[in-house]
Simulated scan of single mutants.
Amino acid sequence: EWQYENTVASVGIDDRSESGYSHTAVLNRALKSDTIIPQYGKLRASQHYKYAGKSVEERLMNPRQFIYAPFSEKEVILVDDIVTTGTTLSEAAEVLHTQGKKVILCLTLSDAENR
């Protein structure tokens, strides 16, 4: 049986719960395996701007401004509940890159454009 040789962190983007649970945290927890270590609270938005129904331009003008909390793994799977334009994933990946991390996969539950 083939197995990935490195330990990888799965990091939920802004995984705080709003109504009792977080879809992102639930998906992140499901990834736990011998090589994937779920991390929680490692990328939290300092700006809580509501993106729903907003244009790409407005989203870009109002970045999440993620606060990064350190973790040891160098390779990362980014986990989010919904992707609409990709701006949140892009911003999160850039923050991780500045911390020396390599994003190897982005995983979401749903694509808002393909309902």
Rank of each mutant, 00 (worst) to 15 (best):
Q3Y: 13
A92K: 03
I67H: 11
S55V: 04
I82Q: 10
A30Q: 12
N28F: 08
V95L: 04
P63T: 06
R64Q: 07
S17E: 15
T7Q: 10
D80F: 03
H48T: 11
Q47I: 06
K102E: 14
K32R: 12
T87R: 15
N28Y: 10
S22D: 07
Q99H: 14
Y21A: 10
D14C: 04
S22V: 04
A92R: 08
L31I: 08
K54N: 05
F71S: 03
D14Y: 04
Q65W: 08
E73H: 12
V79M: 06
N28G: 06
I37R: 14
S19A: 07
Y40N: 07
P70G: 06
Y40C: 02
I67E: 14
Y4L: 11
L60I: 13
V76D: 00
F71A: 01
Y40W: 09
V95T: 14
E57C: 02
G20H: 01
S22E: 07
S72K: 15
S46E: 13
K50L: 05
V26Y: 13
K32Q: 06
G100H: 07
V103F: 09
A69N: 13
K102S: 15
L96T: 01
A93G: 14
A9T: 10
G53V: 08
E5D: 09
Y68H: 09
T88S: 13
G20N: 05
Q47A: 05
A52L: 14
P38M: 07
A93P: 07
V8N: 02
S33W: 05
L27T: 01
E91Q: 12
E75I: 06
K74N: 01
D15E: 15
K54D: 00
E73N: 12
G86W: 13
Q39C: 11
P63M: 04
I77M: 04
Y21C: 07
A9M: 07
S19N: 10
K42E: 00
H23K: 02
L89A: 15
Q47N: 14
D34Q: 13
T85V: 09
A25Y: 01
V83I: 15
R44T: 15
A30Y: 15
K101S: 12
E18I: 00
D34M: 01
Q65G: 03
G86R: 09
V83L: 04
E75Y: 12
S17A: 13
R16T: 08
R64Y: 00
E94G: 08
V8Q: 04
E18P: 02
V83A: 01
L27G: 00
A9G: 01
T24G: 09
S19V: 03
K42Q: 08
K50Q: 14
P63N: 11
L96Y: 05
V103E: 04
A9S: 13
A93W: 04
S55D: 05
Y68M: 05
R44S: 10
I36A: 03
F71D: 05
S22N: 02
I82Y: 06
S55I: 02
M61S: 13
T85A: 02
L78M: 12
